[in-house]
Design a protein around this nucleic acid. Sequence first.
DNA 1: AGAACGCAACCGACCAGTTGGTAACTTGTC
DNA 2: GACAAGTTACCAACTGGTCGGTTGCGTTCT
Lengths: 182, 182
Amino acid sequence: MRTRDADGTRKRILAAATEDFAEHGIAGARVDRIAARAEVAKAQIYAYYGDKLALFRAVFNQNAAVLVEATPFTPDDLPGYAVGLYNGTMDRPDLIRLLTWARLEGVPPNLDDDAWQEKLDQVAAAQTAGVVTPDISPANILAMLAGVALSWSAVAPMVLPPSADDEHRAALRLVIERSFHA
Amino acid sequence: MRTRDADGTRKRILAAATEDFAEHGIAGARVDRIAARAEVAKAQIYAYYGDKLALFRAVFNQNAAVLVEATPFTPDDLPGYAVGLYNGTMDRPDLIRLLTWARLEGVPPNLDDDAWQEKLDQVAAAQTAGVVTPDISPANILAMLAGVALSWSAVAPMVLPPSADDEHRAALRLVIERSFHA
DNA sequence: AGAACGCAACCGACCAGTTGGTAACTTGTC
DNA sequence: GACAAGTTACCAACTGGTCGGTTGCGTTCT
C-alpha cells in the first residue's frame, strides 16, 4: 500500500482529473482511468470529491481562474493584454479545452462577476481618458478582444498550417491597436 | 407500424441526431434517445448509418458545410462577410456547438482544403488590388476574422449580458473595417 | 414470392458509485 | 517505553444500471 499522504493523494487525483477532463470532457472522462492515472483506488476519489461532476467542478474552479488571472489586465495597453491572453492559450491549451467543455456541457461558469465588472469599469475609464475608442461598448470590446486572442486556438487547428507564433502576436497587436485605440 | 418511407426515416434520424449531438456531443449523445426523438427503432439507425461515430460524421458533414457556405465569401467586403458569419452563428447556434464538439473530440475536420485555399488566394488578390491591408497574412486575416465573428457565441454566454444584436453587428463591422482595410 | 423496411427484445461490455475490511498513524494510559 | 484503543487513509471486489450494438421475426410493397 502507498504510504499515507492525504494531501498528496488529493493533488494527484486533481492533476489526473485535470488531464482526463481536458482530453475527454465530462461525459467522456472515465473515473477508473483517472484513478489509474493518479495511482489511487477509485474509492478515494469518491471519498475526497463526492462524485464525477463535483470532481469536475473542483478541477474547473482550480483552473478557470488561472488563465484569466495569470495575465494582468492593462486597460491602457489592450494589445499587450491580448498578447498576454494569447500566450496563456499557447502555454496551457488544456485550460482552454476545459473551459470549452464546461461551456458546452452546461456547467455553470462560476466566474466571479466582480472581476468582470471591474474590467468593464476600467475600460470605460480608459475611454473617458481618451486612450480607448469610445465608439464601442466596453463589453463588446472585451468580448471581441478575447475572441481574436483565442481565434488561433479555436480556428487554427482546423485549417491553419502551423505558422510562427511571432507572426500571430504581431498580427494580434496590430488588430487590437487599430480596432480599439482612440 | 410506421408506413414504409426509407428516405424520410433517414432524414428523421439525421435531424434527431443533429439535435442530440449538438446538445450532448459524441460521448454524451445517446443512441436510444436519438431513436426516440426520430420515432424510429434503434436498429434502424444501425441499418442506415453503421455506428455512432459514422452517424456523427454524417451529421457533421451535412452541417459543417452549411454554415461556411451559407454566407458567400466577399474578399472585397470583409466586414460584410464577418457580419454574415455572425448572422450564421446566431441563426444556427447548434452548428457552432457541433463544430466545437467535433474539434474537442478529435474528429477529423474534413473541411475541403480547396475551398479554404481559394479563400486565401482571394484575400491575397484583394491585397495586391489594394483593398485589403497587406501587412497581415491572408491566413491570419481569415483566422482572426472568424475569431471575432464567433466571439459572442464563444465568450458571451459566459459573461455578457444579452445585448442588442445590432450593436454587435455594428461593432463587428467597425473592427473588421479598421483592422483589415487597406 | 421475395426484397425492402420496421421493430421489440435481447446481449455483453462498460461504468459510476458502494461495501467491507485492512494497514498505517495518533492519542491516551500506565 | 509499551501497549491498547481510536482514527484516518487506503483498496480490491462487487453491484446495479446503462449503453452501443445485434438478432429474429413481422409487415408492406412490387
